[in-house]
């Protein structure tokens, strides 16, 4: 299985010379299974460049959304495969008690927010509620679980040939915890993360920033490192960088985090364009 980061920024696309290394595009990760199955994790602005890179090659694309906040769906309208009639696109999103996925996506993909309506896209669209538990996408198995973030939000673990990648871009496992980390069975996200080979996880804040944003649904890098330690992951990729964090600041944050002591996993600063073999 291979993963490519097409968008690593959180909350808002943040292009500029100060973010050019880590990247300014919002969440999007391409996952290729060993059998060629293509999964796209989230449709942030990073999906535009992925779409251009795909060309006309992929007859079927599977887009797994963690949730429907704007930074995770904003790239939809600029994903060229959606405009090709010969392509089958499956979109998976977390279930809601009130509106189906099509209705919720249409809020964005319709005027006045966007000129093209979802129903007018020529590709063959199939929309699915994510089954909580597990499901298969092509030759890949996907585990899904609700995680702590405002509104229905899921984390995914994708399994292929005994290896796994876990993707939880928006996650606040420390919310309300009187001490963190604590018991693994009382920790949001643990079930889809334990023992994973590659964890791509929210590291939006510093600890002082987190103190001012408790309940916003994101993690301080210290929390994420504690979570990764608890889950015994092999590699941790930092992700969903705060729009206000420049490359230089992110370098400093990572350096500081890595200097707190030996880590039982590899800490990797998540940068746009990075590729991982899993």
């Amino acid at each position: 299985m291979k993963a490519t980061l097409w968008g690593t920024r959180g909350s808002l696309a943040s292009a500029g010379p100060e973010t050019v290394r880590y990247g300014g595009n919002t969440s999007c990760v391409e996952v290729r299974g060993s059998d060629g199955t293509l999964i796209v994790l989230d449709a942030g602005t990073g999906i535009r460049r992925l779409g251009a890179a795909l060309g006309a090659e992929a007859p079927q694309i599977n887009i797994l959304l963690t949730h429907l906040h704007m930074d995770h769906i904003q790239g939809f309208g600029f994903f060229p495969p959606l405009y090709r009639p010969n392509i089958e696109v499956h979109i998976w999103g977390p279930p809601s008690l009130t509106h189906d996925l099509r209705t919720r996506l249409t809020r964005y993909l319709s005027p006045p927010l966007f000129p093209v309506r979802l129903r007018d896209l020529p590709s063959r669209l199939a929309l699915h509620d994510v089954p909580l538990g597990g499901f298969d996408v092509g030759g890949l198995h996907v585990d899904s679980a609700l995680v702590t973030h405002p509104g229905p939000t899921v984390g995914y673990r994708i399994r292929d040939n005994g290896r796994s990648l876990t993707y939880i871009p928006d996650h606040e496992p420390a919310l309300g915890a009187t001490r963190f980390p604590w018991r693994s069975d009382w920790t949001s996200g643990y079930a889809v993360s334990h023992g994973t080979d590659l964890l791509i996880h929210d590291t939006q804040y510093t600890m002082p920033e987190y103190a001012e944003h408790v309940g916003w649904g994101h993690s301080a890098i210290d929390h994420t490192i504690a979570f990764a330690r608890l889950a015994r992951v092999r590699r941790l990729v930092t992700f969903h960088h705060d729009p206000s964090h420049s490359d230089a600041e992110l370098d400093r944050l990572l350096e500081k985090a890595a200097s707190t002591g030996p880590l039982p996993f590899e800490l990797i600063p998540g940068m746009e364009g990075m590729q991982f073999e899993i």
Binding site: V147, T148, G176, T178, D185, W186, T187, Y190
Partner: peptide, 18 residues
């Protein structure tokens, strides 16, 4: 069970503050 459901985790956290 590896992990409690997230709603139950949040219920416990809420209860611990009330």
């Amino acid at each position: 069970m590896l992990q409690q459901e997230v709603e139950v985790i949040l219920m416990r956290q809420l209860a611990s503050y009330l």
